[in-house]
C-alpha cells in the first residue's frame, strides 16, 4: 500500500534548484520506506520482526522511532501501540516523523516556504506563493470534495485520522471492538510526528477522545472532531482562517 505525497515549494528560486530539493525529499522518503516498510523482507522492521536485529544493533533512526513509539504508548494511555497487532509496526509514527524530518531538511537547504502533504498529513512552513499563510482545508467526513474547516497556518503541522476511508479498522483496546464514536479527528500543532499519532489515538478512544484532545491544547495541539452522528467540535484556539 502506498501513500501519495504532495510537495509544494513556494520559494523564489530557480526551477532547477526547486526540482533538486524535491528530489532530495523523495530520496529521503524512499530511504525511510526501505528501512521501515513492513512489506519489504529486507527492511530493518522486517529483520527486527524475525529477530535478526536487536534494538542495540539497529540504526539511529530506528532507535529514535522505537523510543518515540514507547513515549507515545505511555502518553496516549496505550491507545497508540506499535505492537498492536503483535509484530512491530511503527508505521503510525514513521509517516508523520519522516515528513517532519523532510521539512526540516528543506528548511536547512534554504526552503523557508513549503508544504509536504503525505496522505492528508501536512507539515508546512512560511507563506503561500501569493503571500499570507497556507490555507488548509479539513476534508468533510462524508463528502470528499468538500471541506468542513479551513485553517490558516504558517508554521506547523496538521494531521487527520478518520474511519471514513478504510472503515472501522481502528480497535478500541478497552473493548477489543472497532472504535466507534468519532468519524474524523484532526490535530494541529508544532510536530507532525506527534499530531498524527495523537489524532489516531483519539480516534481509537472514541467519544472519550474529545476530553483527551481538549487537554492537548496545553501542549500546543489544537483539534477539530466530527462524531459518527455528525456533531462537530473544535478546540478554542484552532487557527481557523478568516
Amino acid at each position: 500500500m502506498g501513500t501519495a505525497v504532495s510537495i509544494e515549494l513556494a520559494d523564489d528560486r530557480p526551477e532547477r534548484e526547486l526540482r533538486e530539493l524535491i528530489a532530495d525529499v523523495c530520496r529521503w522518503l524512499h530511504e525511510v520506506d526501505a528501512r521501515f516498510s513492513t512489506y519489504k523482507d529486507d527492511s530493518e522492521v522486517s529483520r527486527m520482526r524475525r529477530g535478526e536485529l536487536t534494538a542495540a544493533d539497529c540504526s539511529a533512526d530506528m532507535r529514535h522511532v522505537l523510543s518515540a513509539c514507547a513515549d507515545l504508548w505511555r502518553d496516549t494511555d496505550g491507545y497508540f501501540d506499535a505492537y498492536a497487532l503483535g509484530p512491530l509496526d511503527p508505521s503510525g509514527y514513521v509517516k508523520g516523523w519522516s515528513v517532519e524530518v523532510a521539512s526540516d531538511r528543506l528548511l536547512a537547504a534554504g526552503s523557508a516556504n513549503h508544504y509536504i502533504n503525505a496522505g492528508g498529513d501536512i507539515r508546512m512552513r512560511g507563506t503561500h506563493p501569493e503571500g499570507g499563510p497556507w490555507r488548509v482545508g479539513i476534508r468533510h467526513p462524508w463528502e470528499s470534495d468538500k471541506v468542513s474547516w479551513v485553517l490558516a497556518l504558517t508554521d506547523g503541522a496538521i494531521a487527520t485520522s478518520g474511519t471514513y476511508e478504510r472503515g472501522n479498522h481502528v480497535i478500541n483496546p478497552r473493548t477489543g471492538q472497532p472504535a466507534k464514536g468519532l468519524r474524523s479527528v484532526t490535530v494541529v500543532g508544532p510536530s507532525l510526528a506527534l499530531a498524527d499519532a495523537y489524532a489516531t489515538a483519539a480516534l481509537a478512544m472514541g467519544e472519550p477522545g474529545l476530553n483527551w484532545l481538549a487537554k492537548l491544547a496545553a501542549d500546543g495541539y489544537e483539534s477539530a472532531v466530527v462524531t459518527d452522528d455528525g456533531r462537530a467540535f473544535s478546540s478554542a484556539n484552532l487557527p481557523a482562517a478568516v
Binding site: A84, G92, G176
Partner: peptide, 21 residues
C-alpha cells in the same frame, strides 16, 4: 514568484492506524 509542485505516489508504507493494544 516561482514555485514548483510535484507529487510522488507510493513512497510511504501505509499509514497503519493503531489497532488494538
Amino acid at each position: 514568484m516561482r514555485r514548483s509542485t510535484a507529487a510522488a505516489v507510493g513512497t510511504l508504507t501505509g499509514a497503519a492506524l493503531i489497532v488494538g493494544v
